[in-house]
Amino acid sequence: MERRHFPRTLRLIVLFLRPLLMLVTKRDWQGQERLPSGGYVLAPNHISHLDPFLISHFMVDQGIPPRFLAKDTLMSLPVAGRILRGAEQIPVYRSTSGAAESLRAAIAAVEEGSVVTIYPEGTITRDPAAWPMTGRTGAVRVALATGRPLVPVMQWGPQDVLWPYSKKLRLFPRKTIHVRVGEPIDLSDLDGRELTEELLDTATNRLMDALTAMMSQVRGELPTTPRIDVHTLGRPRTNYRP
């Protein structure tokens, strides 16, 4: 396993949270051998407010320091900002005019050898059956800008603990958290080309197709409705329960 640096603040967070997660969840993790070395983009689907904790649990057990995107304004807050900076989380500069410029810190982190987790949907799914929606282009932008792998990671199970947009925790009986690591998305035919919206959408669709296919395997079923477009979201549509 590749040895990576865990900042002190992050080590303290792990020391506190990992035993708790071990207590309240069961784990079904597969595909870890597909994780590359060096820097790359990890792109999971988003199905619960608990996702960052559970994906972090998976990452920590693979020896990977969790690094997520956070609004740059959060970094300036007295307490939260200090924790985020100490844990070496990645600011997103939303006040900038260009999408690529807003991701400059994420691009730099990947180029320096970090694993950066970017949720391609940008928000928790609004699909009534919790299937992946269409994606935004941030994860693809960082992967193409750096030339580093874009790795799809599918999770299923967090929604059983805390359903999307719900406030009711269902900790017991313990739920199984399924994680599947897919092969890096093949973007070789897009290397060196101008990053047009059409190209970025093409690459993002490949990523979301991979996540949906992995989820279909775990759930033993296929989506029965069209994929929700993240650009036309209205009110949450998450009344379905398994």
Rank of each mutant, 00 (worst) to 15 (best):
T9C: 09
V92A: 04
L50E: 06
R206I: 06
A43L: 02
D191A: 12
I185Y: 01
Y240K: 12
A43Y: 05
V161Q: 08
I83D: 01
P7L: 08
W29H: 11
I124K: 02
S48C: 11
T125Y: 03
I83P: 00
A87C: 09
T134I: 09
G39Y: 00
M154T: 11
E121Q: 08
M208R: 01
V92H: 04
G220M: 12
P242M: 11
P132T: 05
P120I: 01
L84D: 00
L187G: 03
S97P: 14
R206W: 02
P7G: 08
T125L: 05
V41A: 00
S97A: 14
T134E: 05
P184V: 04
R136E: 02
P44G: 07
L233F: 15
T9L: 08
R180S: 04
D191P: 09
V115Q: 00
L169C: 13
H57T: 15
P223Q: 07
G113W: 10
V161S: 11
A143P: 01
S216K: 11
I185M: 01
L169Y: 13
G81P: 04
E221T: 15
M1K: 06
I55C: 04
P52D: 06
L50P: 01
R170Q: 12
A80P: 15
T238C: 14
L20E: 09
V115W: 01
L200A: 03
E194H: 07
G98W: 08
V14E: 06
L187V: 00
H57E: 12
A80N: 14
L50H: 02
V230E: 03
I47K: 09
R4L: 11
R104D: 12
R241H: 15
V92N: 01
V151G: 00
P223E: 02
I55R: 04
L150K: 02
F58I: 06
V140D: 00
H5C: 10
R227N: 11
R104K: 13
R235W: 13
L233H: 06
A129H: 14
L222T: 15
H57Q: 15
E101Y: 07
S188V: 04
E112I: 09
I107H: 05
P128W: 05
Y93N: 06
V230P: 02
L144W: 02
T204S: 05
I47N: 06
T232E: 09
G192V: 05
R206P: 06
P36V: 05
D229A: 06
R82A: 09
R193W: 04
I228D: 03
V60C: 05
T202S: 12
G39P: 02
L190C: 03
Y165G: 08
I177A: 10
E111W: 06
